[in-house]
Amino acid sequence: MKLINRGYKLWTRADTGGYVSKFEVYKEKMDWMMAKPGLCENVVMRMCENLKAKWHEVYFDNFFTSLSLLQHLYESGVYSCGTTCTNRKGMPDFFLGKSLERSNSDFRVAGDYFIVVVKWMDNKSVHVASNFHDTGLK
């Protein structure tokens, strides 16, 4: 009685008011998805094609977020931020085994473009990576 692992996915880019400005329907593997660097990064880069060099802010969830994607978007002139998983390639290892008290946070700067990676503790830890947010330190 397992669900069939097939179907459609709808990739969308929407503004803060919920207006959808770009979308794609995914139903099976396409040639552009098989190219490097990978599905998630390719989807976001395609969704942001007409934002290049305009320095708009783009936010996404941990399905898409990687340090290499944030770096590629910064090189393309797009600010980006998203929640992330600690086991992603290139993540600072300060996340591993480090416990914080609730409402405390810690951060590291990673990559060539000063990508800020933050760990914030709620009931569980929340991890965020950004290529444009400031650390708050002077």
Rank of each mutant, 00 (worst) to 15 (best):
K2Y: 10
Y8I: 12
K9W: 08
A14S: 12
D15T: 07
T16S: 14
G17D: 14
G18S: 07
G18E: 06
K22Y: 04
E24H: 15
K27D: 06
E28I: 02
M34K: 10
A35L: 13
P37V: 03
P37Y: 05
G38K: 03
C40L: 03
C40G: 15
C40H: 05
V44Q: 07
V44I: 15
M45T: 08
M47H: 05
M47P: 01
C48Q: 03
C48H: 05
E49Q: 14
W55F: 08
W55E: 10
H56D: 09
E57F: 06
E57M: 06
V58A: 00
V58N: 02
V58I: 09
Y59A: 06
S66G: 02
L67Q: 03
S68E: 09
L70K: 08
E75D: 14
E75I: 11
S76W: 06
C81P: 00
C85L: 15
T86C: 14
P92Q: 08
P92V: 04
F95D: 09
G97C: 07
K98D: 03
S99H: 13
L100H: 04
L100P: 01
E101A: 13
E101Y: 10
S103W: 13
S103A: 14
V109H: 04
V109N: 10
A110M: 09
A110C: 13
Y113W: 09
F114M: 13
F114C: 14
I115G: 01
V116P: 03
V116M: 11
V118P: 05
K119C: 06
W120H: 01
W120D: 00
M121F: 09
K124G: 12
K124N: 13
V126G: 06
H127A: 11
V128G: 04
V128E: 00
A129M: 07
S130W: 05
H133R: 15
